[in-house]
Design a protein around this nucleic acid. Structure first.
Lengths: 159, 159
DNA sequence: CTTAAAATCACCCTTAAGTATGAAGGAAAA
DNA sequence: TTTTCCTTCATACTTAAGGGTGATTTTAAG
């Protein structure tokens, strides 16, 4: 308890001790002043210097440290896989009669997946994916998946 | 020149002026001391307070600020699908070692053309297109043309 | 409760895509 | 001048993609 008290009030104790020491020096200087009567300016100068030093020390110890914040900008590239100004063209989707599952297949096609990978991802057979893609090509009036991707992107059916 | 000098030595000038003012106060207090002979302690206390204040002010003014480095990660959004502000990533193209002809094939692939159509358009044989596309896939580290298109768009190699 | 569309899957077949390997001419760099 | 890369093309082969047809089950709408 007492050690904690000492540690917490360390600065105050040091400051108090310093003041006591200063008073002693003052008394001694006063005595000297009485003996050597014409050293008044030196005495005042000493007091001034000591208290200025104390002020500096106090300020440096107690003042909140000035913090100069240096902002280092670290560029972190974030690839956005979605166009911010992408608006899904639901009207066109309905107009073409493309179903939910077909759209899913289309999106995965566009991501570069093969029919087999799409089948695995959607937990259906390869044949199912082929059926979906075939119907998709009919509805989009295209012949290949690459054309389907190009057209779907152009029509804002996919991002 | 003189204004610059004044600005640069502002602190020193202010400090000098403060010292001059203090000397005046000192002299005045000295006069008071002569008149009212028993106010010595008050005089000393005043000196002490003034110089301590000066010390504190000096310390606060002249103290070197602690430099705190704050690393701020600035997310640099890299949009890849937006057509209007498309910037061709030539650096990435060179980095991957993709040739002019390979880029042409890539662009036509992305437009939805088949290898045969690309061959016709570029007046080369189907085998040549296949060679180009194979090397393209190697360089892009992909396995299919749909993947190549997706990655190339992501890297801003094509629009 | 029908009915139609959607989703699922299968089989067979054709075509396209992609791999591997080799080769030859041309242009630019070492 | 040699070397390297690009471009071109060929053959043979494997795998993926796509078309056609038919069938079953599920789901949502009339």
């Amino acid at each position: 308890m007492s050690t904690v008290f000492l540690a917490k009030n360390k600065l105050i104790i040091i400051y108090g001790a310093s003041l006591a020491l200063l008073l002693l020096i003052l008394k001694w200087l006063e005595y000297r002043f009485v003996v050597v009567s014409h050293s008044f300016e030196i005495y005042i100068g000493g007091i001034a210097l000591i208290f200025m030093g104390l002020g500096i020390w106090l300020a440096l110890k107690l003042a909140k440290p000035k913090v100069e914040t240096v902002i280092v900008e670290v560029e972190k590239e974030v690839f956005i896989n979605s166009n911010p100004d992408f608006v899904f063209n639901e009207a066109e989707l309905e107009k073409l009669g493309i179903s939910k599952r077909e759209l899913e297949v289309l999106q995965l096609m566009s991501a570069g997946l093969s029919n087999n990978e799409i089948a695995e991802k959607l937990f259906v057979s390869l044949n199912t994916v082929k059926t979906h893609s075939s119907k998709l090509f009919e509805k989009l009036d295209v012949k290949r998946r690459t054309q389907a991707i190009e057209k779907a992107k152009r029509l804002s059916l996919i991002q």
